[in-house]
């Protein structure tokens, strides 16, 4: 097989990789963000439930949850490999993002909340206008890391047959007996995706930085 076609075959899996990531990461964000606020401000019982959620999901290897959602639960929910993969990764990511946001919220000192209440804001208003904007800036570095992780974890869906980058590298490697080339290509593509993501988020972080005198 000529080199160009080789690379192209593997690279064509990028669409699937991006697809899985672009479903998993934002859904993890939405769920994780909401749950983080519930965990911090919701009271004792909701807090305990969030702990349970977070502990369980961070205690299972993503690929195991993947198999459960795809194979085990197929009687009740019949998902395609792509959706089973994306949703599993989204759920797992939401647990990690819950912890990222929880930590960031707690880093915005409780006194900011107090100052906001002193001006007459309700708890919800204080969260929305004072805690949330500050919390986001604190969360970006860790979140950037999580984004990279989800991109890389997307490769796990090879195991249920999504024709993304890794699976294609495997197939090409098998039929041409050129594993080195195949996997290096795959590695380079993943690296590029992660690199670009980190760069973009770094820029976002800089843009959002609050001016201060050294």
């Amino acid at each position: 097989m000529d080199f160009g076609r080789f690379i192209q075959y593997i690279a064509s899996g990028t669409a699937y990789t991006l697809g899985v990531t672009l479903i998993a990461l934002p859904s993890g964000l939405l769920i994780g963000l909401v749950l983080a606020f519930v965990a911090v401000y919701g009271g004792k019982v909701p807090g305990k439930i969030m702990d349970f959620y977070s502990t369980i999901l961070r205690g299972i290897p993503p690929i195991v949850l993947l198999f459960i959602l795809y194979f085990v639960m197929s009687g009740a929910i019949n998902l395609s490999p792509f959706w089973a993969g994306s949703i599993s990764l989204g759920i797992i990511s939401s647990a990690y993002q819950l912890e990222i946001f929880r930590g960031a919220i707690l880093s915005v000192s409780g006194e900011q909340m107090m100052a906001a209440r002193a001006v007459g804001m309700s708890k919800m208003q204080a969260i929305r206008y004072v805690v949330l904007p500050q919390m986001i800036r604190l969360a970006i570095p860790s979140w950037s890391n999580e984004a990279a992780i989800v991109i890389k974890d997307s490769s796990l869906v090879y195991a249920i047959g999504v024709p993304e980058i890794l699976r294609r590298a495997q197939l090409i490697s098998a039929s041409t007996q050129q594993p080195f080339l195949a996997y290096i290509t795959a590695a380079l593509i993943y690296f590029a995706l992660v690199f670009i993501t980190n760069r973009v988020l770094g820029r976002v972080e800089r843009k959002l930085t609050i001016p201060a005198n050294p």
Binding site: F71, S74, G75, P81, A159, G161
Partner: peptide, 17 residues
């Protein structure tokens, strides 16, 4: 065609995937 690792195939037939 649905391609997947060999040892996933039996389960996939069983589960109707």
């Amino acid at each position: 065609w649905t391609d997947m690792p060999f040892d996933s195939l039996i389960a996939a037939v069983q589960e109707g995937k």
